[in-house]
Amino acid sequence: MANTEAALKEATTLIDGALGAALVDYTSGMALGTVGGGKDLDLTVAAAGNTDVVRAKVRTMEMLGIQDEIEDILITLGTQYHLIRLLRSRGANGLFLYLALDKNRANLAMARLQLRRIEADLEI
């Protein structure tokens, strides 16, 4: 079991091509923790912005009448991958992990698997 800081650190050091990671509360849009980022990637802005992405998808599923849950969301940019993984462990409702990756250095399948494992180990 890892705490927030440790889990984010693990995500940015273990996963190849990681640029930054954040644990975000999408009921408020505020980050519980951030690691990495910098002037090219403001993780506070990313937390607020991706909260709107998650909320939009949740609402869309409601409107479509799909009784299911979101496991993760992938956004592919020209040079980056952005992975959003919703937390489903007990007591972690309304949170998501956000991971930005350098497209040239990252292995998407591997990153997704590693993020899943980090989520499973995460203790809030």
Partner: peptide
Amino acid sequence: VNVGRLHL
């Protein structure tokens, strides 16, 4: 409201 965005 998205408080993060509100602040920004």
